[in-house]
């Protein structure tokens, strides 16, 4: 136990002696990991928001009605037909009255409500698909049905969002990988400078028979502390940004700008762990060349 305390103390003395270099390494790790963690959070925000899209209505079929010579029966028959398709997970029939209620709700604070008569709003079938990317097929099949007035789908926006989501996914992953590698290299550099600063001491240690691990462990501890400190600052910065964005959240209903606590916590812990491991790894890399027996 006193031995471990001695080794940790050695690491801290090391770090104090090279405060500037250590600060540089910690800042570098901070910037890399904050960027990577930030990218992850943005990616999650996009995913959550596209998920909301995906969970809503995928295709709306506005129907012709008795004025166009289409009976309620043929409307319902169409719905039954749609229900039978493999790609359809559920449907909902919204009649003219319900459409009007919804309309009133949507435009509650505007004068437009008073000018619109329920009869001008068409009945519709709202379709939810098992796989949202199938919206084109469904549209294609419906577009020539006699009972159909118009088919609309947020599909194109969804396409664009899922594209964005996958681009961000790769970008975030790439960024995290590059930045992670950069953090490892930077720490290894710092450790090399620390070894160089202590080369006399290391030479004497070797001379009096200090074991290899006894010489290495303080440097490994130093690398670990630097990686961990950088990761901790990065996690704090992202947490702070998340809290600030969370405050804005109430005013924007359409796009949710925050991520779940569980998600943040999981990644924060992983990043702290990664910081420490990257520190040890970088340190080991720095030690490899300089500490031959």
């Amino acid at each position: 136990m006193t031995r471990l305390a001695y080794l940790i103390q050695e690491a801290l003395i090391n770090m104090r002696r090279n405060l500037l270099v250590v600060t540089g390494a910690v800042l570098a790790v901070f910037v890399s990991l904050a960027l990577a963690l930030g990218a992850l959070m943005v990616n999650e925000i996009v995913r959550v928001n596209t998920l909301q899209w995906q969970e809503g209505t995928h295709v709306i079929v506005f129907l012709k009605d008795t004025r166009d010579g289409i009976s309620l029966d043929s409307q319902l028959a169409l719905r039954e037909q749609i229900d039978g398709w493999d790609v359809v997970s559920s449907t909902q029939y919204v009649d003219q009255q319900a459409a009007y209620e919804e309309f009133k709700e949507l435009f509650a604070n505007t004068s437009i409500v008073r000018q619109v008569d329920p009869s001008v709003l068409p009945a519709s079938i709202r379709i939810r698909l098992t796989d949202i990317t199938q919206y084109r097929d469904v549209t294609f099949r419906l577009i020539d049905e006699p009972a159909v007035r118009e088919v609309v789908s947020p599909g194109e926006s969804i396409d664009r969002l899922s594209n964005l989501s996958s681009v961000l996914n790769w970008l975030g992953l790439g960024l995290a990988l590059i930045q992670g590698a950069a953090a490892v290299v930077l720490i290894s550099n710092t450790i090399r400078m620390a070894i160089y600063a202590r080369r006399e001491e290391v030479a004497v240690m070797r001379l009096v028979g200090a074991s290899n691990w006894f010489i290495r462990i303080p440097f490994l501890i130093e690398g670990m502390l630097e990686g961990f400190a950088g990761a901790a600052v990065a996690v704090f910065a992202v947490w702070f940004a998340r809290r600030r964005l969370g405050g804005v959240d109430d005013s924007i209903d359409l796009f949710q700008l925050t991520v779940a606590d569980g998600f943040f916590l999981k990644w924060a812990l992983l990043f702290l762990l990664f910081g420490a491991v990257a520190g040890i790894l970088g340190s080991a890399l720095g030690l490899r060349r300089f500490l031959k027996v």
Binding site: E200, A203, V204, V208, G209, A210, N212
Partner: peptide, 17 residues
């Protein structure tokens, strides 16, 4: 390292820290 613990060394340049 265990070998070196059985050997004391003294050098011309003292090698003190």
């Amino acid at each position: 390292p265990y070998l070196r613990r059985t050997i004391g060394t003294v050098f011309q340049d003292f090698k003190l820290l």
